[in-house]
Design a protein around this nucleic acid. Structure first.
Length: 643
RNA sequence: GCCGGCGUAGCUCACUCGGUAGAGCAGCUGAUUCGUAAUCAGCAGGUAGGCGGUUCAAAUCCGCCCGCCGGCUCCA
């Protein structure tokens, strides 16, 4: 008798050894048709796995999050099977599931996306045949014998322990695989090959170049459609396109990876930084600035000359080596060390908007997301060990306030001591405990990445989520056990002895360039009023109204607004269209009616128009919206008359 | 850096087999003076990313270089 316990606590008894399918059948036929895998005592396994002893079983249906991974793993096999049918001498390597789908690395002649159609057709045939999928466990010797002409698979098997080797079969296709898989290929209702790229066997450039073919798969055609739509939406929001269209920034061959900010981009930039400065002032920061170029002895002291040199722009001047800073910290250390400090001054929170240069590999550059020259909204906080917790907490609260202002949600990850690291156990213990208790008193859930810290200290990474649900790592809080040591920093304690300060590096935006790119995509160019590069477009209806419109412009600018007047001799419709396409949040048309009545007609980006707003009231509402940094305009919520 | 794709006017794109480039928008000029998403006409604009090669002839074919895009972290 086998007893199976279901997640709801229900028990089912079986006389003969059951499989997951049998368990499902006992519950309902509908479930049995749908179920794709099961969790057996906490381990995800195939549905037809025999349940030999009493066990806890959870049946996995397409609704469960794990199901998608199983599906995609099988889809990777289906793709490999199709490719082997078409390209006879292709050699399979590995084919894992990834975040949005799966890929398979295959040793074969280079293919392009044009070849996807025929591969997909073959895949469709395999899916339609509903080939049953069978697991088989074999001894190592047998596995090796099976793969006589498959060097990659042989290499993988040689690294596996005997007795753990399993194969999966569907039709004529067999693959070394841990599983689990779907019961048959027919469950794959929707799939698509996405892209192909080169990848090296074992990510090693000296080894064979493989074709990495990416695909995605879903249980439902609608899910695939939604996913493809999401990709389209993300493409539309591409910050490079929007940035060029709005005249925010550009890139030039003469300085690859180094953005040029145009006047409107600078307005946006300055708006962001004005806000940043206000928040930092409020949080007790002071602002500093250190030089962009420092000589070799500094970088030798910090360790960068030895460890980071290939990423630094260097130059020899008057027989001395200099490097453009790739990080702000060493300069910050000199600044702190420039005079003696008392414990009474601590904590010192020294912020610096630092322009750093890093020579990143040409192939990794990516718009504003990955550049070679960028500004960090850096700060170094020097403190006593007791101050770790409250200071970290302060940073977390600051981060929270800033991100919330942009409507970005976020989650936190704590990374602890890696194997290769400096410092004593005690130092790491104090540091890690400080971060942890700050996180605990902050009260939000966080994830722990054991061993993922920097070699010089533990850290908290902040991952934000944008309007499309994509996540980005921007902010980070890192404890540094190394630099205060290397720069021999100290403060005098109450005991009149010298003490080594604890130091944290932290950024909120991370890279201002990158953060701006994220905001452009997050808002799809439609920035909240307080940030917008142009807040108000004034559109005179005809040339006679230009002077009057200019006077309104003056009033608005005196009120602190960024205003653009479109006094070209063009049709009103055209001016509206263009203002709308460049995402100006408030479009104000100026005609004789307005001139006579002293009111305004305002159009917002959603196409709503409101007539007859008194100028003073308009300014009041707008000023309030700017000041409160609201996401959406308040103008239409006001009483006092639509039209 | 490596692999793949791409590079034609400021932008978006076209140019069947190799026969030395064309449109819309933007710009300029003129007319139009307009009430909530493109008024009309004319003009001007390109050493086809750069260099080299093949050819009677190259945007087109080949090579090198530069830049851009996607990927190179996910490991049966």
């Amino acid at each position: 008798m086998i007893h199976v316990t279901l997640p709801d606590g229900n028990k089912k008894a079986f006389e003969a050894v059951p499989t997951g399918k049998d368990v499902a059948l006992r519950i309902s036929e509908g479930l049995a048709r749908n179920v794709v895998a099961m969790e057996l005592d906490g381990t995800l396994v195939d549905l037809d796995t025999k349940i030999e002893t009493d066990a806890a079983v959870r049946l996995i249906t397409p609704k469960d999050p794990e199901a998608l991974d199983v599906l995609r793993h099988t889809a990777a096999h289906v793709m490999a099977q199709a490719i082997l049918r078409i390209y006879k001498d292709a050699k399979l390597t590995i084919g894992p599931v990834v975040e949005d789908g799966f890929y398979y690395d295959i040793d074969m002649a280079a293919i392009s996306e044009d070849d996807f159609k025929k591969i997909e057709e073959e895949m469709r045939r395999i899916v339609k045949a509903r080939l049953p999928i069978q697991r088989r466990e074999v001894p190592k010797a047998e596995a090796m014998a099976f793969y006589q002409n498959e060097p990659y698979k042989r290499e993988m098997i040689s690294e596996l322990a005997d007795g753990t080797i399993s194969f999966y079969e569907q039709g004529e296709f067999t693959d070394l695989c841990r599983g689990p898989h779907l019961p048959n290929t027919g469950f794959i209702k929707a799939f698509k090959l996405m892209k192909v790229s080169g990848a090296y066997w074992r990510a090693d450039q000296s080894k064979a170049q493989l074709q990495r073919i990416y695909g995605t798969a879903f249980f439902d055609k609608k899910d695939l459609k939604d996913y493809l739509q999401f990709i389209e939406e993300a493409k539309k929001r591409n910050h490079r396109k929007i940035g060029a269209a709005m005249g925010l920034f550009s890139f030039h061959e003469e300085a690859p990876g180094m953005p040029f900010f145009h006047p409107k981009g600078m307005v946006l930039w300055n708006n962001l930084l004005a806000y940043w400065r206000a928040e930092h002032r409020r949080a007790g920061y002071v602002e500093t600035k250190t030089p962009m170029m420092l000589n070799r002895s500094l970088w030798e002291r910090s360790g960068h000359w030895e460890n980071y040199r290939e990423n630094m722009y260097t130059s020899r001047i008057d027989d001395v080596d200099y490097a453009i800073k790739p990080m702000n910290c060493p300069g910050g250390m000199l600044l702190f060390g420039s005079r003696p400090h008392s414990y009474k001054e601590l904590p010192i929170r020294a912020a610096e908007i630092g322009l750093v240069h890093r020579h990143e590999l040409s192939g990794v550059l990516n718009g504003l997301f990955r550049v070679r020259a960028f500004h960090q909204d850096d700060a170094h906080i020097f403190m006593t060990p007791e101050q770790i917790e409250p200071e970290i907490l302060g940073v977390l609260r600051l981060v929270d306030r800033v991100y919330s202002t942009f409507g970005l949600s976020f989650h936190l990850e704590l990374s602890t001591r890696p194997e290769k690291s400096i410092g004593t156990d005690e130092q790491w213990d104090v540091a890690t405990r400080g971060l942890r208790s700050a996180l605990d008193s902050y009260g939000r859930a966080y994830k722990i990445n054991p061993g993922d810290g920097a070699f010089y200290g533990p850290k908290i990474d902040i991952h934000i989520k944008d309007a499309l649900g994509r996540t980005w790592q921007c902010g980070t809080v890192q404890l540094d056990l190394s630099l205060p040591e290397r720069f021999d920093l100290s403060y005098t304690g109450a005991d009149n002895e010298k003490h080594r300060p604890i130091m944290i590096h932290r950024v909120v935006f991370g890279s201002i360039e990158r953060f701006m790119g994220i905001l452009i995509e997050h808002f799809a160019g439609k920035f909240p009023l307080w940030m917008a590069p142009v807040q108000v477009a004034l559109l005179p209806i005809n040339d006679e109204l230009t002077t009057f419109t200019r006077s309104i412009q003056e009033t608005f600018e005196d009120a602190g607004l960024t205003v653009m007047v479109d006094d070209r001799t063009e049709s009103l419709n055209k001016k509206i269209r263009e203002a709308q396409l460049s995402y100006v949040p408030l479009i104000v048309t100026v005609g004789n009616k307005e001139k006579e009545s002293g009111t305004l007609s305002v159009r917002t980006l959603d196409g709503k128009v409101r007539y007859g707003i008194a100028k003073e009231r308009f300014l009041d509402v707008v000023r309030r919206d700017v000041q409160s940094r609201k996401q959406a305009l308040d103008l239409f919520d006001e009483e006092g008359g639509q039209d």
